[in-house]
Structure formats: structure tokens, C-alpha cells
Nucleic acid binder design. Structure first.
Length: 583
DNA sequence: GTCGTGAACGACATATACTATGTAGTATA
């Protein structure tokens, strides 16, 4: 089976193909809402949510899936049977990756891309830089010097964040997990993992490093280069292969012997600064550390190589979690046994949407069942309030309240089910509904969804004002950034954190991968005040409840003290805080 | 491109605000 294209198309791969088709069709037709685009998106959703492997279905069976018609079914079969979809290939040629990167810049949509390509010969971000420098943008009909300046600013901001040309973790992590799963299927493979900055949980990654221990490296490489995600192979050797995916992410695969995997993981996880420090430490003990082993300088006798734990232990260090390996004092802390304590298990979620939100995909019942299955003690249902596009009117919340009350009878003490809402924070700190209606909720998270360009003072003031509302218990995705796509709003973090501490408002660490918000910077600032944190999923589907783990992993990068986090470990602290709003 | 009704064709269409331009494009959960 392996080595043939047929065995390798899982529902996720097929759904991705239709999502890509939708993305390319938006560019092609210049309309994000065309019926064709929506049909592709529906098809992607239908396949992703199917409870059978779509690749095993016939044309007729495929068409029985809601949202898949004749054309979609034919495209699925074509891709599964031939390893390629003509329509997709055609659009990829027409709209190369560089063009798609252009379309992802904030403020630039499909229409502008078309105009830039046709009238200024701009086909990439670099072309755009040159056109701006040459003042060519202002000569295009419908654009002006003002637009030109806006484009320049957008590029400058993304450059400052260093995200252009890097892959956001929201793309890299699911891709890496999928590749790991695929490589596990290869005969003779004993170990597969991802390393690099992705394992350290950085927001964006330059490439994805995969590590394999296998008896037959050649077979691994052979299978690897035939994966459906592959666009082209950059380097191919016996132990190292690099390739580029169709989304433009570079993947490096390295094959090592099973007994060397610990040293390899350590080396390829980095960071460089961490590795340098470890190697110096090894030298001071008369040893040498490389990607194969920790060994004696004289004679080369191996001290440790099979696990990272053994290598750290041999060096007299506590195990350093990958998230802390940045060369920022972690070695010294590990030596003294003063690494931050790990977070306890997450015991509740405080940012969860259901189908009451226009964009929610799981029902209240499904969310409650899933929370029970996860062993939660508390669950706050927080659907969008009227201030956002997907928001629900009062009546919908009243209806939901009745259903939540009914659930409470069944739940008893097992789960504290809170009726909440995600309130929108207006440009001046206004909140949805009125104070009387808001007071009926058990838990409100308030967050910013628009007016991203206000000056710092006003952004800060709107959030501080929201925190002063008696109904507001936490602030959601504080900066409203989208990693790699949109910078966060401009905020005076010290003022925010101080106000949060004063009002007893928790700050959410939103674990949705495109957000990871609080940012590391905000988390570090929060540590200076007595501010409480909540790890949340922002789940719109039961499958996304696991985002809380991302929040925890990410927060670990900022050396967050577990005592600051309300919803991990012993629930007593959490339950007490819930009763405590100061006003 | 899909669906449903009736066997070929029409319905489907977040809504709203903002920005830059002077009507269109983009962003938002």
C-alpha cells in the first residue's frame, strides 16, 4: 500500500485540497462569496466532518454526503485515483505561492491583487516593496499615495514582527502532527517526532524539523518525498531530506539510529543558545555533546544518547521543557532546581461557543458532554453577543438560559455550568445589551473584534472601561492579533495589567493557534502585577476544546507561575474566585 | 457548485462598518 498515492489521502488531506481550491478560486474570481467558493468550502467541511474515509467511497456514495455533488465527487475520485486534481493544478499555476502571500497581507484582498498584477506587474511581496519604493502604486486607478503609504506600513509592521516568509504555528503544528502520523505508518520506523522551534512552541516557524529513527532510512525517504503535501524536493540524501510543501513551508526530515534519538531531539529542538550552553557545560566536565551523543572527549565513550532526560541528568540538570529552551536562564534554573513548576490539569474552560453563535458548530449538549469527558469542574458557555456579526439576540440567550438550567439539574455537583457571553468591546469601551441584561449572566468575557487602528490611549481606555463593568469577569484575546496575519492592537500593557489586578478581572490566554493571546510579552508584564489568568479554548467545535493545552504550553514559554492561573490544578481557588467579583 | 423540484432551472446570498475614494474593497466572530 505504501508508496502509492492511493493509501495516503485521509479526510483531512481531501478537505485541505478543497480549502485550497476555495482560496485559489477567491483569487481567480475576485469574490470571496461566490457560490463556487462557498461550494468548495462546504465540500471541505463535509469531508472533514464525515465519519467514513472519503477516499474509499464511490462517486455515488460521495454524492450522498451533504454538500458534495457531482463535480465535488469527481474531484475527490480524481485526486485519490491519480494523485492530482486538474482544476487545482491549473489554479496553482495561475496563482503561485508568492501571489497568495500578497493576498494574505491585511488590507489587500483579491480585487487589489488582480489590480496590482495587471497594472503594476506586482506578483509578490517583494514586487510590492519595489513598486512602493518607485511610487508606482499611486498611479494605479482607484489607489493613491495614501494607499501606497498604508501598504508600506503594513509591510513594515510584519517585517518588524519577522513573520514574512515564516509559517504561523496554526499551520505548522497541524501539518507536523499529520506528517508524524504518516511517517509512523512506514515499515521499520521506530520513532517519529517533530523538533525545532515548533516543539519550543514559537508563534511562527522558519521550517518544520522532523526526526525519525528507522532501520531502513532509504524507505523512509522514498515515502516522504511521495507525500501528497509535497510541492518539490530541495535536498535529498540518505539521512537528510528537505522539501517544500504546497503551502510553501519547508520540511527537513532527518533519520538517525534509535539509540541516538535523544541527542538528536536535543540538538534539533535547540535553541541555538540553549545548545551552546549545554555544550559548554559538557566540555567543562570533560565531555562533548553533539547531535549523536553526550560522550567522553577522550576515547569517545558514550555517556548518554538515547533520551533527552538521560542527557540532562548526566549534565546535572533537571529536565528542561522544550518551551523554556531559549537560552534565557533556564540552564541555571535547572541546575538549582528552580524551573517553573508545571501547570496542573486544566479543570475548566471559560471561552466556549455553541450553535447559538452564528459561527458555532457544536451544540450546548455536545459541549457539556465533552467537558464532562475531559473531567472539567467548571464550564462557561460564552456565545457571541449582539455586537459581533455572529452574535445572538437576547431571545436566543434567554432560550439558552432555560436549557442550561435544565442541564444543571442533571449535573448536580459534577460540573458547574455557567451561563455566559462573549461581549464585544466597542471603540469607547461600550458593551452589548444593557447593564441589567448583562447582570443576568454568570460569566462574561469581553473582547475586542473591531476598530483595530485606534491610538494606544483609546485602545487602552476602552479595555480598562470594559473591565470596570460588574458583569465582566475576564478579557478575551487581549490584543486581537492573528499570528502572521494581523498585528495586535496598540496597548499600554502596564496600565491594562494594573487595571486587571485592581478590578479582579482575569486575563484570558486564548489557546486558539492563530491567536495565542495574551502574547508572551503581555504574559511577562502580567507577572509583575497580581493578575489572574485563565487558559481558554475559544472552541467553536468540541474538537477545539483541546486548545486549552496550547494555551498552557504557550504560557510556559513566558515562565508563568502556576499560582497565577485560575483554572489548573486544585479547583478550590477557581471556585472561590468565581464568587469574588469586587463590585 | 449544490440542492430541490420536477427533470432544467432557479435559489442560494452572514451584515455592517470602516476606509479610501467618489463606488468599491476589505475585515470581522
Amino acid at each position: 500500500m505504501l508508496g502509492t498515492a492511493m493509501a495516503t489521502y485521509r479526510n483531512q488531506d481531501l478537505a485541505e485540497a478543497f480549502d485550497e481550491l476555495a482560496e485559489l478560486t477567491i483569487l481567480d474570481e475576485g469574490d470571496p462569496q461566490s457560490f463556487r467558493v462557498r461550494a468548495y468550502e462546504n465540500a471541505a467541511r463535509a469531508i472533514a466532518g464525515a465519519d467514513v474515509e472519503a477516499a474509499t467511497l464511490t462517486l455515488a456514495q460521495l454524492q450522498k454526503l451533504e454538500g458534495i455533488g457531482k463535480s465535488g465527487a469527481t474531484k475527490v475520485r480524481e485526486l485519490v485515483d491519480t494523485g492530482c486534481m486538474a482544476k487545482l493544478e491549473e489554479l496553482r499555476l495561475k496563482h503561485p505561492l508568492e501571489v497568495r502571500a500578497l493576498a494574505k497581507l491585511p488590507g489587500i484582498g483579491p480585487k487589489t491583487v488582480t489590480k496590482l498584477r495587471a497594472e503594476a506587474n506586482v506578483h509578490s511581496i517583494d514586487d510590492l516593496r519595489a513598486a512602493i519604493a518607485a511610487q508606482k502604486i499611486r498611479t494605479i486607478k482607484g489607489l493613491s499615495a495614501k494607499t501606497e503609504a498604508k501598504f508600506a506600513q503594513v509591510i513594515a509592521e510584519l517585517d518588524a514582527q519577522g513573520v514574512i516568509g515564516r509559517t504561523p504555528i496554526s499551520v505548522a503544528l497541524p501539518l507536523a502532527r499529520r506528517l508524524v502520523e504518516q511517517l509512523r505508518q512506514v515499515p521499520g520506523v521506530e520513532h517519529v517526532s517533530y523538533a525545532g522551534s515548533l516543539r519550543r512552541f514559537r508563534e511562527t516557524v522558519g521550517d518544520i524539523d522532523l526526526l525519525v529513527a528507522a532501520t531502513d532510512p532509504a524507505a523512509v525517504m522514498e515515502t516522504f518525498v511521495g507525500f501528497p503535501q509535497v510541492d518539490r524536493v530541495l535536498v535529498r540524501g540518505e539521512t537528510k531530506t528537505s522539501l517544500l510543501t504546497r503551502r510553501g513551508t519547508q520540511i527537513d526530515l532527518r533519520v538517525v539510529a534509535a539509540h541516538q534519538i535523544g541527542a538528536a531531539q536535543l540538538y534539533f529542538t535547540g535553541s541555538k543558545a540553549h545548545n551552546v550552553a549545554l555544550r559548554q557545560r559538557a566540555l567543562s566536565r570533560g565531555w562533548t555533546l553533539n547531535e549523536y551523543a553526550l560522550a567522553e572527549l577522550d576515547g569517545g565513550k558514550v555517556i548518554a544518547s538515547e533520551t533527552e532526560e538521560a542527557i540532562y541528568a548526566a549534565l546535572g540538570l533537571a529536565f528542561v521543557p522544550p518551551t523554556l529552551r531559549e537560552g534565557a536562564g533556564e540552564i541555571e534554573a535547572a541546575e538549582r532546581g528552580q524551573l517553573p513548576a508545571p501547570f496542573g490539569a486544566v479543570n475548566g474552560d471559560f471561552h466556549v461557543h455553541t450553535t447559538t453563535s452564528g459561527d458555532g458548530q457544536s451544540t450546548l449538549d455536545e459541549m457539556v458532554e465533552a467537558a464532562l469527558a475531559r473531567g472539567y469542574r467548571v464550564l462557561a458557555i460564552t456565545d457571541h453577543a449582539e455586537g459581533t456579526v455572529s452574535g445572538a439576540p437576547r431571545e436566543a440567550f434567554e432560550l439558552q438560559h432555560a436549557r442550561i438550567v435544565a442541564w444543571r439539574e442533571k449535573l448536580g455537583d459534577r460540573l458547574l455550568l455557567l451561563h455566559g457571553a462573549e461581549l464585544n468591546i466597542g471603540p469607547n469601551g461600550e458593551l452589548d445589551y444593557d447593564a441589567e441584561f448583562r447582570a443576568r449572566f454568570d460569566f462574561c468575557v469581553a473582547s475586542v473584534h473591531d476598530h483595530m487602528d485606534l491610538p494606544r490611549e483609546q485602545q487602552t481606555a476602552r479595555i480598562v472601561r470594559a473591565m470596570q463593568d460588574p458583569a465582566v469577569r475576564s478579557i478575551g484575546h487581549l490584543s486581537a492579533r492573528m499570528i502572521g496575519a494581523r498585528p495586535g492592537i496598540d496597548l499600554d500593557y502596564d496600565a491594562i495589567v494594573e487595571a486587571a489586578a485592581q478590578t479582579g478581572t482575569a486575563l484570558e490566554v486564548n489557546g486558539a493557534l492563530p491567536r495565542l493571546d495574551l502574547s508572551e510579552e503581555a504574559l511577562r508584564r502580567a507577572a509583575k502585577h497580581d493578575v489572574k489568568l485563565l487558559f481558554t479554548s475559544d472552541a467553536h467545535h468540541v474538537d477545539e476544546l483541546g486548545n486549552v493545552a496550547h494555551a498552557a504550553t504557550y504560557a510556559a514559554r513566558a515562565w508563568v507561575d502556576p499560582a497565577r492561573v485560575l483554572n489548573t490544578g486544585d479547583p478550590a481557588r477557581l471556585l472561590e474566585w468565581l464568587k469574588s467579583k469586587s463590585s
